[in-house]
C-alpha cells in the first residue's frame, strides 16, 4: 500500500511541478491524501484503539 501511495505522490509531484491545471493537481493530491488517511485508520484500528 505504501508503495502505491508513493507512486501516486510521485505522479502528483510531477503534475504539480509541470504547472498542470488546478483541478488535475487537486484530484491526484486528494487521492493521495485519502489513501494516507485510510492507511492511518488501518494502523489506528490494528495497534491500539483510543477512547475519546
Amino acid at each position: 500500500m505504501a508503495i502505491l501511495i508513493f507512486a501516486v505522490l510521485l505522479l502528483a509531484g510531477w503534475l504539480t511541478v509541470r504547472g498542470s491545471r488546478r483541478a488535475t493537481v487537486l484530484v491526484v493530491w486528494t487521492v493521495a491524501l485519502c489513501a494516507v488517511l485510510a492507511v492511518f485508520n488501518h494502523h489506528m484500528a490494528a495497534k491500539l484503539s483510543l477512547n475519546f
Partner: peptide, 15 residues
C-alpha cells in the same frame, strides 16, 4: 508521505 503532500503546496506555486 504527509511531508511530501505538504511540499506539493509550495511546488504548485512554483510550477
Amino acid at each position: 508521505q504527509a511531508m511530501i503532500l505538504v511540499m506539493c503546496g509550495p511546488l504548485y506555486i512554483i510550477g
